[in-house]
Each structure stands twice: as structure tokens, then as C-alpha cells.
């Protein structure tokens, strides 16, 4: 697993450090660093919790998302 933290975007809140059950992240100089990327099982809780959207995972299995309403997405695409 390759985890990239955008150091410019990270606000150093430490939410990813607290939330990750496998202690993948550590705060170093007020910036989150993925110190144990091989322990990541790809739950993406850190993505959901990160207020700065500073995280990027590469080589991850994206679970099926049946709950996304296709019609709503079609409408959003017209607006966004």
C-alpha cells in the first residue's frame, strides 16, 4: 500500500492518528506521516475523517458502492 500525505494540506489535527486501528500514522512536526503503510487494510476511515482531504492511497481495492444513487450523481454532474 502506498499512502501519500499532502504536507501542505495537512493541518496536523491528528484525527487519522487517533482513528486508525493499525497505527499507520504518526504526527511528526505537526504533520501526519504514514509510518506503517503495510499495516493499512484500506478501510479509508482516514479519508472520511480528514478535514483537509490531505490523504491519498494507491493500490487500494475500492469496494462496491451500490448505495450511490446513479440518478442523483447524474444530476450532480450537470451542476458540478
Amino acid at each position: 500500500m502506498d499512502i501519500h500525505v499532502d504536507k501542505d494540506a495537512c493541518v496536523g489535527c491528528g484525527l487519522c492518528v487517533k482513528d486508525c486501528p493499525m497505527h499507520v500514522y504518526e504526527l511528526q512536526n505537526n504533520v501526519s506521516v504514514a509510518v506503517r503503510p503495510n499495516n493499512c487494510m484500506g478501510c479509508l476511515s482516514c479519508h472520511e475523517i480528514c478535514p483537509a482531504q490531505a490523504l491519498e492511497h494507491r493500490g487500494i481495492y475500492a469496494a462496491r458502492r451500490h448505495y450511490i444513487d446513479i440518478k442523483v450523481c447524474e444530476m450532480l454532474r450537470k451542476v458540478v
Binding site: P21, G42, C43, S45, H47, I60, A63
Partner: peptide
């Protein structure tokens, strides 16, 4: 349950 996430659960 060890952990629940939006993309996977342990």
C-alpha cells in the same frame, strides 16, 4: 468488530 470503515471493515 475491530474497526469499521467506509471502504472495508476489520
Amino acid at each position: 468488530i475491530v474497526h469499521t470503515g467506509p471502504n472495508a471493515c476489520l
